[in-house]
Design a protein around this nucleic acid. Sequence first.
DNA 1: TATAAACCCTATAAAATAGATAGGGAATAT
DNA 2: ATATTCCCTATCTATTTTATAGGGTTTATA
Lengths: 137, 137
Amino acid sequence: MLSKKTKYALHALTYLGKHRDEKTILIHDIAEEYGISHKFLENILLELKKAGFLGSKKGKGGGYYLIKEPQDIPLSKVIRLLDGPIAMLPCVSLNYYEPCAECKSETECGINKVMIQVRDETLNILENKTLQDILKT
Amino acid sequence: MLSKKTKYALHALTYLGKHRDEKTILIHDIAEEYGISHKFLENILLELKKAGFLGSKKGKGGGYYLIKEPQDIPLSKVIRLLDGPIAMLPCVSLNYYEPCAECKSETECGINKVMIQVRDETLNILENKTLQDILKT
DNA sequence: TATAAACCCTATAAAATAGATAGGGAATAT
DNA sequence: ATATTCCCTATCTATTTTATAGGGTTTATA
């Protein structure tokens, strides 16, 4: 399951995407909209900013705003940033690969093979669906 | 990511599947094969037994054995038993559904829609791949 | 029938991760 | 100047995962 952090990040991006006519959006407003902790969300927005999805402006009248076009933000990138691996096993993760300690031979492991399939199908969706797609509805 | 519990369960089933010619298999032997804790594995095998995948025999000469045919054990069932939901969000889980606290309208949520797609693709694999498939290699 | 082997069951401890909070710092509009 | 708002790091709490402990029950066999 996705962590709350990731869910909140996706919601926040959605909110920012839907309010692109406004110059900046307050953390406060997003937190209120979804009934989540201001401070927790603050940390999340900061991560999204460091990752290059958001810009911000300090001081009175400041806030956050999208700096990428929604169609240029694949869901896979958001999930990997906040949650880490998308794959179901470390041994099939493209971005966070690690061998499984208990596994003698990856190439002979049937579990590995199935999980590669699952990973590929999942990524096929998450790399092609972007913020744009979740804004549509 | 799958928990170690689930990974170990899949490995144990694999081991039992590969030794179906023997009447019973000791916890000890499986634990040793994969270098995992005897006691931890014991709990896992017990769960697999209660779920109807395994049979057991107590006392000297006892042990565990498969009571289902490998092709009748879909990976989805094993994962759900040990790990819980396969879906990425509670609001799209078929077996462990819960609404997302922060979400006002599921039908208007774009994230929900994408995650339904991911769930369906994932299940399409995990419900059709069985222990038989991971034994092949 | 005594003994050792092996699973059965429940509880608890330890470690890791996730979720949340706290508090002061820096920039900026007015 | 002041109030506002993001920036940064640290810490605390709760939850979940992983692992261990220890005795109970069954059974083969000598």
